[in-house]
Write a protein that binds this DNA or RNA. Structure first.
Length: 108
DNA sequence: AAAATGACGGTGT
DNA sequence: TACACCGCCATTT
């Protein structure tokens, strides 16, 4: 495994997500410096070596739909975790209008 | 070094 | 509103 700056940034950002809030892959990608690297972010989450250290379950699709997650019962467990943290849901979709984490881009 | 993959996003139909 | 297609980026094989 190489130490890619991008990965480090993505993990760092993900780690900064407050409890009860969520961010979209695109948002993380944008914060990481590449607004169109949503896919890359997804893969990075999948390969995430800091599972318990990085709340990857707080990262959802742009429309609020839960995707991926390899653990427990998949998205079911992910949703359960988010609800447990106080994230608002609309059926199986996250209510981004209320629970999307707003964070400004921080340039190092 | 090149090609394939993927937990996305946006637009078109 | 639902489904399909293309484009994007970084990682992995």
């Amino acid at each position: 495994m190489k130490n890619s700056i991008f990965r480090d940034i993505v993990y760092t950002i993900t780690r900064q997500i407050p409890k009860g809030k969520v961010v979209t892959y695109g948002q993380v990608a944008r914060l990481a410096g590449s607004p169109n690297a949503a896919r890359a972010v997804g893969m990075i989450m999948k390969t995430n070596p800091d599972a318990p250290k990085t709340p990857c379950h707080r990262v959802v699709a742009a429309n609020g739909n839960l995707t991926g997650y390899s653990g427990g019962n998949g998205v079911s467990t992910k949703k359960d975790m988010l609800v447990s943290e106080g994230v608002h849901f609309k059926g199986d979709i996250v209510d981004l209008s209320v629970s999307q984490w707003k964070q400004k881009v921080v340039i190092l």
